[in-house]
């Protein structure tokens, strides 16, 4: 299932946030959107999710304009995994995942046995079946993120949008969540994440999109985008990119530190 964004522009009042954004993500692709704070990453997601309908341009799923979908239909195409979820009241993990099945039940219906089984299967798939009766709000940030991924799987949509999935997680949980996302893209899900970690996007994603001031300044393979020149330009910071393990990994380091060691500029 491919997703294509074509000439998308968006303004809040007179302030233009996104300028003529175009890109395409194929089935099974893991795409990272990098960019400084305020670059328009969240706005881009909100446009794709139909939360900001007043954009110009198109968002196409397998060639179909997402604007023609109802909320229910759209939720079967694109699943959103927010940074965190804070329901007003406390729910069990299973109930949270069941909410992903809302698009199966009618407006006046409740989720049924089948939906419950699908939700349990989604939890098992992520490896957190044991959490099903726990209270969602009492879980750690990493566990909550995994539950939200399970909810997206229960939603059964081929495109997954993760909004800074590792932003508030400890290092171990960051790896856990990214491994899961990687695994899902290998299974055929189209995965798009926004992130502030260039190194992680190099390691885990198939492509990187660099967004600055609402414009795409680079779109390509991680080895093409994660360069000293581009990182300097993107973040307006004196940063050096160091290649490790035959370029299997790249690390960003503040440039003055590299200068002191004299290793590389």
């Amino acid at each position: 299932m491919s997703i294509e964004v074509k000439n998308l522009s968006f303004s809040y009042g007179k302030k233009q946030i996104l300028h003529d954004i175009s890109f395409r993500a194929e089935k099974g692709e893991f795409l990272s959107v990098l960019g400084p704070n305020g670059a328009g990453k969240s706005t881009l997601f909100r446009c794709i999710l139909g939360l900001l309908p007043d954009y110009s341009g198109e968002v196409l799923i397998n060639g179909h304009d997402i604007k023609n979908f109802s909320a229910r239909e759209a939720s079967r195409q694109i699943a959103y995994i927010p940074q965190n979820s804070t329901p007003t009241f406390h729910y069990s993990v299973l109930d949270i995942v069941l909410m992903g099945r809302t698009n199966r039940a009618g407006t006046f219906g409740n989720p049924g046995k089948e939906d419950e089984q699908a939700s349990l299967a989604a939890l098992e798939k992520i490896g957190i079946g044991a959490l099903k009766n726990r209270s969602f709000h009492k879980l750690s940030g990493g566990e909550q993120q995994l539950v939200l991924i399970a909810r997206a799987l229960a939603q059964d949509a081929p495109v997954l949008l993760l909004d800074e999935p590792t932003a508030s997680l400890d290092y171990g949980n960051q790896i856990l969540v990214l491994e899961q996302a990687k695994k899902l893209s290998a299974e055929g899900y189209t995965v798009i994440q926004t992130t502030h970690h260039p190194e992680q996007s190099y390691l885990y994603s198939d492509r990187i999109l660099a967004l600055q001031n609402g414009r795409i300044i680079a779109d390509g393979k991680p080895c093409e985008v994660l360069t000293t020149e581009l990182m300097k330009e993107l973040y307006h910071a004196q940063v050096g990119v160091v290649s490790l393990f035959d370029d299997a990994a790249r690390v960003c380091i503040p440039a003055e530190f590299i200068d002191q060691k004299g290793n590389r500029q």
């Binding site: 939720s75 959103y80 979820s85 698009n103 407006t107 006046f108 939603q155």
Partner: peptide
Amino acid sequence: PLLLLRWQLNVITVGDDEAKTLGIH
């Protein structure tokens, strides 16, 4: 209707935006 909409009432407590991506209005 209040009884019929009770599942949707669960979903809306996650917030409007998130609820919309889950398929409700």
